[in-house]
């Protein structure tokens, strides 16, 4: 428990900065809904002129596109992107900073098993992500209610918002795995930024090409906002891949770290 609390405390400032930034971005993007809504009526009229086949190909439902979840599906990606960077940073730092801060010797010569060390650290990361996601949910919900004059489908909105947390879990697990495999990560941010943006770009390119096989390559598309907005459901095949990535990454991380030489620095 002492490691857990220690870790919890040491990421506090970091989390506060992220939560504030993501919160500000959320308010900024959602406040644009009013402008969007004005042009959306026109969009709906336009869309009705198109054959259903094409609309379906783009995953667009005319009735949904002018709603708040419809708009939200366009902007959520940017917010999830921020959350993913935060999560990957945490995932890498949890064990990675022991290697760079030369503190591995300190921690691992204490009467704790390596398994206990990892568990405590992962739980601390999980706590931070859960808190961040909860704050994000609050801010997003409050902004959504204040910009939508009429009501909106909160169930769908909630499902979409929760995808923030799921994607965070995936990237935290990936970060953890990276930190265990790569001997010494000197700067965390360049690694997490390039990985997260890499996957993000892959997902966006997949979307521009309208190719959902590419979606398997990008965790950002495991919980595709456009799909959730339209069908109020997750896509089980992608969600399963996401869950598998988390489980495998964490299990592999435990296994590798337990048997790894900790070198003097």
């Amino acid at each position: 428990m002492n490691i857990y609390f220690h870790e919890l405390r040491s990421y506090r400032k970091n989390t506060i900065i992220w939560v504030l930034s993501v919160g500000a971005a959320t308010v900024m993007f959602l406040s644009m809904f009013t402008i969007y809504y004005e042009s959306a009526g026109e969009l709906v009229r336009l869309f009705q002129a198109f054959p259903d086949a094409i609309l379906k190909a783009f995953g667009m439902d005319v009735a949904k596109i002018a709603t708040l979840p419809g708009f939200y599906s366009f902007i959520l990606g940017f917010l999830v992107l921020c959350g993913a960077i935060q999560a990957m940073n945490l995932g890498i730092s949890a064990l990675g900073r022991e290697a760079t801060g030369k503190t591995a010797d300190f921690l691992l010569t204490k009467p704790v098993t390596r398994t206990q060390v990892i568990t405590a650290k992962l739980l601390a990361v999980l706590t931070h992500l859960a808190v961040s996601s909860a704050v994000f949910l609050l801010v997003a919900s409050a902004s959504a209610f204040s910009v939508s004059a009429g009501g909106f489908d909160y169930g769908t909105f909630l499902m979409m918002t929760l995808s923030f947390f799921y994607v965070q879990l995936i990237f935290a697990a990936l970060g953890f795995l990276v930190s265990v495999i790569v001997p010494k990560i000197k700067s965390v941010l360049p690694v997490s930024l390039s990985t997260v943006f890499g996957f993000y770009i892959v997902g966006m390119v997949g979307a521009a090409l309208n190719d959902d096989r590419i979606y398997y390559l990008s965790p950002f598309k495991y919980f595709d906002p456009a799909y959730i907005a339209q069908y109020s459901a997750y896509q089980p095949q992608y969600a399963a891949v996401g869950a598998a990535v988390v489980i495998l990454a964490v299990a592999a991380g435990y296994l590798i770290y337990k048997n790894k030489d900790i070198h003097a620095v």
Partner: peptide
Amino acid sequence: MPASVQAVMG
């Protein structure tokens, strides 16, 4: 599509 929708869809 309106420019804003084109934009957000990349």
